[in-house]
Design a protein around this nucleic acid. Structure first.
Ligand SMILES: NC(=O)c1ccc[n+]([C@@H]2O[C@H](COP(=O)([O-])OP(=O)(O)OC[C@H]3O[C@@H](n4cnc5c(N)ncnc54)[C@H](O)[C@@H]3O)[C@@H](O)[C@H]2O)c1
Ligand SMILES: NC(=O)c1ccc[n+]([C@@H]2O[C@H](COP(=O)([O-])OP(=O)(O)OC[C@H]3O[C@@H](n4cnc5c(N)ncnc54)[C@H](O)[C@@H]3O)[C@@H](O)[C@H]2O)c1
Lengths: 223, 223
DNA sequence: GTGAGATTGTGAAAAACTTAACGACTTAGT
DNA sequence: ACTAAGTCGTTAAGTTTTTCACAATCTCAC
């Protein structure tokens, strides 16, 4: 049902959530229309790239006018499946995990962390940021049909083992914050966010690239 | 002194810290040699890409043998300036900032968060993760000559204002975790790590890309 | 020593992504 | 109604990154 236009470049797909958020901002500010140039300044993406990105979805704008904010927003809401809440599990309620649990991803993302898991008995049974923390042994049981994405914030030594269990439990997307590069079957997607690497890469760029010439770089990034 | 080989692709530069960490792991495990194929399996980067990346620095390996772990490690240590500690400031001791302060970036990165800043009187004067928290008003004073990188974990509404002050204070690299896309002069580099976007992008990929065919993606990227 | 097997470094091709440029169309002011 | 200014969608060019594929070279077991 949504595997129809297989040709949207990955680079474009990664920018969609960014566009979506800024369109939301504009909408909340009461703006009716926006041009690729304005949007470009806000999101720091070349305006030609924005027009190109949008064009993969058809002709969303009007020549000489720009884009209708409300229309564009509702289009992206559908495209990004923002009408249904995405339910997520978080494994590892430590420093990083706790920070995420306190953050409200619902606000812009319609994403909700449904369960958290840990091994630490002191944390089990409590709620952190309104999310109940369960024992890791209950992982398979609690991750029912409706959770297909997990955030992994355990120590790196535990990462592969937990990933294996997540996959067995039916998870097909993992956002991995551990430094471990985990191995998963082909049908599972892993995005690594490696904070230490990001920091070190930034430092490297500063020391080795002529500063006045280079432009900024988008992180993964990977954002 | 280090602006000599200007031709190293950015994509390569971003992978260097990753290689460095895995080489460290191998070294600590007592491994003497490693091939691009082995390394490839560990870091999930195509072996040809690894060889190409390394080749920008000259012939680091030996045909038929592979790479000497110790030599490669010491080469990258120099290349990544791991002999001198990089001092960093963190602005915004909230959920995310606190998590970072508790993390030891020294272990693999030789990077140290020297000062943290906040507006919350309750936090000022305390130490979090061994890092003293100062008032944001003292930013310019405390960021002396030796801090040129900052981690930004304030509310997005404060991001641009703080960024302006950081730049004035002499910071030339900012790791921005806020959803705000900040504007800085050309000589300053900003890497955005946008966690909400990363999560939403992962969800989008799961729903719209045929799972059995696609391979994993590095975040920033950026992973 | 020798030769089978391993592995690099790289030229060349392919793929992915970005940017420039402009014709076509829209708007809005007169 | 006409025109100047604005903006899209897209073609084509440019850039960057990845991947293939293989000659050159090294290793190591015998
Ligand atoms: N905190 C940071 O700023 C930071 C920066 C870079 C990378 N990381 C990485 O992120 C990950 C988490 O970091 P952190 O600082 O939150 O670590 P942490 O030690 O504070 O948290 C880890 C949590 O996972 C739990 N845990 C351990 N084993 C588990 C298991 N088998 N199943 C379920 N839970 C388990 C622990 O009880 C703990 O609560 C680590 O891999 C770390 O390397 C963190
Ligand atoms: N926590 C998450 O998981 C998460 C996820 C995605 C994005 N973010 C973004 O990261 C940023 C930080 O998130 P958080 O959850 O840590 O927020 P937070 O509200 O917990 O922390 C913000 C901190 O900044 C301080 N602060 C406010 N104004 C300041 C100023 N002018 N100068 C210095 N300090 C100031 C506050 O006192 C607070 O301690 C936010 O922009 C948020 O949108 C966080």
């Amino acid at each position: 049902m949504h595997i129809e236009q297989q040709k949207i470049p990955q680079a474009t797909a990664k920018r969609l959530p960014l566009y979506y958020r800024f369109l939301n901002n504009l909408y909340n500010q009461g703006k009716m229309r926006v041009s690729s140039k304005e949007l470009s300044e806000a999101v720091k993406v070349d305006s030609a790239t924005i027009r190109r990105d949008f064009s993969y979805f058809g002709a969303l704008g009007k020549k000489g006018y720009g884009y209708n904010v409300e229309y564009l927003l509702s289009f992206f809401r559908k495209t990004l499946d923002q009408d249904e809440t995405t339910k997520v599990a978080l494994i590892g309620v430590g420093n990083l995990g706790t920070a995420f649990l306190h953050y409200n991803f619902m606000k812009n993302n319609n994403t909700k962390i449904q369960f958290a898991f840990d091994t630490n008995e002191g944390k089990i049974g409590t709620e952190v940021g309104g999310v109940p923390v369960a024992h890791i042994d209950d992982l398979e049981e609690k991750i029912g049909e409706d959770i297909s994405v997990a955030i992994l914030t355990v120590p790196s030594s535990a990462a592969q083992g937990i990933a294996d269990r997540l996959v067995k439990a039916g998870v097909s997307g993992i956002l991995n914050f551990t430094p471990a590069r985990i191995t998963v079957p082909d049908h599972v997607r892993v995005h690594h966010i490696d904070l230490a690497v990001e920091l070190q890469a930034l430092v490297y760029f500063l020391k080795h690239y002529p500063l006045d010439v280079e432009e900024n770089i988008e992180s993964d990034e990977e954002d």
